[in-house]
Design a protein around this nucleic acid. Structure first.
Length: 599
RNA sequence: GGCCCGGUAGUUCAGUUGGUUAGAACGCUAGCCUGUCACGCUAGAGGCCGUGGGUUCAAGUCCCAUCCGGGUCGCCA
């Protein structure tokens, strides 16, 4: 193996485009591919920027040529030579008209045959990619995505800094507040039996920073939630977190809308149409069955409770009389596409979300069929069809249940149809604000009210009288930024009145002691003068995934975790020494080794 | 915790109603080749069919359990 000696890189692969033929270049990187033609050897050198072909043969010194012939994929090399035009250019490659005719080749590190080919074209299972993440990261697609992420975070920082926000780091070891998601806990060595939590977000600290006179804060913050993973959820993830003082809802929205527009323009060259439309939460639910509606296609919901509330079909009338509703989607002109089998599949989707079934009316060319019409009177049938705007070729899909179930089921059915039938246009960013969220929702298990957003969220002024009389009808100064069915971020105006905050805690069922114990320091801080303030937080990983057009946020995180919350490359979480546990004053309740597990 | 899908050469996959010696492509190794770029040609190596039980004359194939990966519901203030 060779050393670099005094040789240093003069150009990255893509910088060859700015150099002239005849110029002397030194490049460095990995061998992406070598092609030995006998008297000629070509090697594709891959570096952080791209590919440049190295050429050997003809006048190449015999020792260099021999080295070139020995090159294998992923060997790390440094090459010096003259840039020249190729005899036969390759239009597929940005540098395809150029090659480096190598006079000095240093093989700096030999590579074993990798467990998979380091090329985007070759499909590889995700478990292998994560086990050998360093190889996966060499592949162009992922490599470029990670670089794109860096461009995005830079644009985000630039925006906030340019608008007088202060970048402030908040602690990672914090007090656990057992509301919301499960906390990751960290045992204290110095204070036996006590624990830190890792932050689920910098929420409390950023509010306190507003009381500290910073006025405008932002941070790109790592957050932790000990909950099960999804394609769009990791146990540790990154938030773009911000807060502003002396503002109301519209100010926060305007500031962050401008941020998103600037980032899209700078990074992707995409000009978003602003301002983003605002849609009240109730409208989003009624029309799309979701608080993060994908507005790129129709298939909106239609409430037919009024028509079937008294009908003879118990499934319908029962749901309405129990306080729920009957709603439908008209799959316009999809009667041929939505076969019985396809409807059965959609029924399964609906059932996943708690619906008892999916009633349908199929107006196909070959004849009508329906699971429910036989239970309705002619007048009811006609009224229902009219309400749905049903015509030949349509399919009506109905769910009858409590509102939450109806929305969840039909919202999912709506998405499933659109995906399957290709109704979702590509390359469109439909941004909107969902506003006027309810302040509280009923917890199914306990029956008590819990905060939809968090307990510091300011109610709408006009709804404050409802706090005591009808909490369920009370709306919050909370807003989500939604794009293409993805919740990109959300936030709220915070309560800055200690009395109102105390009332909130009481309504949420906190005892005085518990509120004091968990949030005493926060309530105390608010007693010393608190400006009106609010903010929001974005899921950076989701934003990058959206901009990089990736399905999973694992594809935009350098070292993501998998479904069991482990990290396959390093193998964490892992067992630790008994000694470490002793120092931390925690007894090991889980078996320390597999041998112990057997015994 | 529930449900669904998957696990077969290094990789991606195929493998019939259970039936002789488990295949392909790419990769890898060796040889040949002076303009390749998915180089080409020739030859070759490479398999505990995730693991453990069971059914059977016979299991990659059927059954049970378990491990691993993915999706999803619950969960995610």
């Amino acid at each position: 193996m060779d050393t670099m000696g005094t040789l240093r890189r003069t150009h990255y692969a893509m910088q060859a485009l700015e150099a002239s033929p005849g110029e002397r270049l030194v490049v460095a990187g990995s061998v992406a591919k070598s092609r030995d033609l006998g008297g000629l050897v070509f090697a594709d050198l891959r570096d952080n920027t791209g590919i440049l072909q190295l050429a050997f043969g003809g006048d190449t010194a015999p020792d260099i040529f021999e080295k070139a012939a020995s090159l294998r994929s992923e060997d790390v090399v440094m090459a010096e030579g003259l840039l020249r035009l190729r005899e036969s250019p390759n239009d597929e490659l940005p540098t395809g008209r150029l090659e480096l005719f190598v006079s000095d080749l240093r093989i700096l590190s030999r590579a074993e045959t990798p467990p998979f080919e380091v090329r985007d074209e070759v499909p590889v299972g995700e478990d292998l990619r994560l086990r050998y993440r360093y190889l996966d990261l060499r592949r162009e697609g992922l490599h470029e995505t990670i670089r794109l992420r860096s461009q995005i975070t830079r644009a985000v920082r630039d925006y906030y800094l340019d608008h007088d926000f202060v970048d402030i780091e908040t602690p990672v070891l914090i007090k656990s507040t057992p509301e919301g998601a499960r906390d990751y806990l960290v045992p204290s060595r110095v204070q036996p039996g006590r624990f830190y939590a890792l932050p689920q977000s910098p929420q409390l600290y950023k509010q306190i920073l507003m009381l500290s006179g910073f006025d405008k804060y932002f941070q790109i913050a790592r957050c932790f939630r000990d909950e099960d993973l999804r394609a769009d959820r990791q146990p540790e993830f990154t938030q773009i977190d911000m807060e502003m003082a002396f503002v109301d809802e519209g100010d926060v929205r305007a500031a962050n809308e401008a941020m998103v527009c600037e980032v899209f323009e700078k990074v992707l060259g995409v000009k978003l149409s602003a301002p983003f439309p605002c849609m009240p939460h109730s409208e989003a639910m009624a029309r799309f069955g979701s608080d993060k509606p994908d507005t790129r296609f129709g298939l909106e919901l239609c409430d037919v409770s009024g028509i079937v509330g008294d009908c003879g079909f118990g499934v319908f009338s029962g749901a309405v009389q129990a306080g729920g509703s009957v709603r439908l989607i008209n799959a316009k002109g999809l009667a041929e596409q939505l076969s019985r089998k396809e409807i059965d599949r959609l029924t399964e989707t609906a059932k996943t979300y708690g619906a008892k079934g999916l009633a349908y009316l199929r107006l196909a060319e070959g004849g009508e069929s329906s699971s429910y019409e036989k239970f309705l009177s002619d007048a009811e049938k006609a009224a229902l069809r009219a309400a749905a705007g049903a015509e030949a070729g349509d399919v009506l899909l109905l769910v009858a249940d409590g509102d939450a179930t109806v929305f969840a089921a039909l919202g999912a059915v709506r998405l499933a149809i659109a995906k399957k039938q290709g109704l979702i246009p590509e390359g469109v960013y439909n941004f909107l604000w969902v506003t006027d969220f309810p302040l509280f929702e009923r917890d199914e298990e306990s029956g008590r009210f819990v905060a939809v957003h968090h307990p510091f969220t300011m109610p709408k002024e006009e709804d404050i009288p409802l706090l005591e009389s009808d909490p369920g009808a009370c709306r919050a100064k909370a807003y989500d930024m939604v794009v293409n069915g993805v919740e990109l971020g959300g936030g709220s105006i915070r309560i800055n009145d200690p009395a109102l905050q105390a009332q909130m805690f009481r309504l949420l069922g906190f005892t005085e002691e518990r509120a004091q114990q968990n949030f005493g320091f926060l309530m105390e801080a608010y007693r010393y003068g608190a400006p009106p303030h609010g903010g929001m937080a974005f899921g950076l990983d989701r934003m990058v995934a959206l901009m990089a057009r990736r399905e999973s946020i694992r594809d935009v995180i350098a070292f993501p975790k998998v479904q069991n919350a482990g990290e396959p490359m390093s193998g964490c979480p892992d067992l630790v020494d008994e000694g470490q546990l002793d120092e931390l004053h925690i007894r090991s309740t889980a078996p320390a080794t597999e041998a112990d597990a057997e015994g």
